[in-house]
Amino acid sequence: MIKIDELKKNYGKLEVLKGISTEIAQGEVLAIIGPSGSGKSTFLRCINMLETPTDGQIWFKDQLITEKKTNIMKVRQNVGMVFQHFHLFPHKTVLENLTYAPMKVKKLSKAEAVRQARELLTKVGLSDKESSYPNRLSGGQKQRVAIARALAMNPEVMLFDEPTSALDPEMVKEVLEVMKSLAHTGMTMLIVTHEMGFAKEVADRVLFLDEGLLVEESAPTEFFSNPKSQRAKDFLEKVL
């Protein structure tokens, strides 16, 4: 579904991604882990072109999206993204947060957008919050709304950049539960996370990034019990 070939990203002289290649199949759930500053966010943000790669190619369903002539807006409609700090629209209610893009971008009728938004809010357990403004919600609730907002565009892939890192510990679980059930629906997911237990349980594959390189790529059972590289061993020792 997604093919990445020798992806590189520099900020000036700083090489953040130094040539990353991998392929992601439809329905696969990937956990992307690694030390802070290793380039995980940059990697994720290149996939929906929030960052423009310096070099390398990315195909999304046989479309070369790193090409200049690609309509990147169209691609983004199929790639949902969830941020560490939610980035809900503070001047819109929960319901409006969910209906805005489908109406604006996909030209859905208001009735249809609202119907679909309510369905999604029920799925993430927040149907009673539809007319609240984001500042009235807890962190966990905000992140569940953010997930629902991304899902409202009916994406084929979901990117998560440390979705639980900004949450108080007691709210992590509710968000992970939503993500888990999303994984069970067969959604293709790329998740940057420090939740090793979650990665072990839900991911089909673990990508370990360090200093802009894809150091290790394996099944979670394999990665967590028997990491091949020294860097991964050091990293796991620190976090587990």
């Binding site: 929030l50 983004r76 409609q77 949902g80 941020f83 980035h87 809900l88 893009a101 907002r149 991304a150």
Partner: peptide, 14 residues
């Protein structure tokens, strides 16, 4: 907040 721009762009909003 810069994140507002990114959230909108990530949704495919022009």
């Amino acid at each position: 907040d810069k994140g507002q721009r990114e959230a909108a762009l990530a949704l495919g909003v022009p």
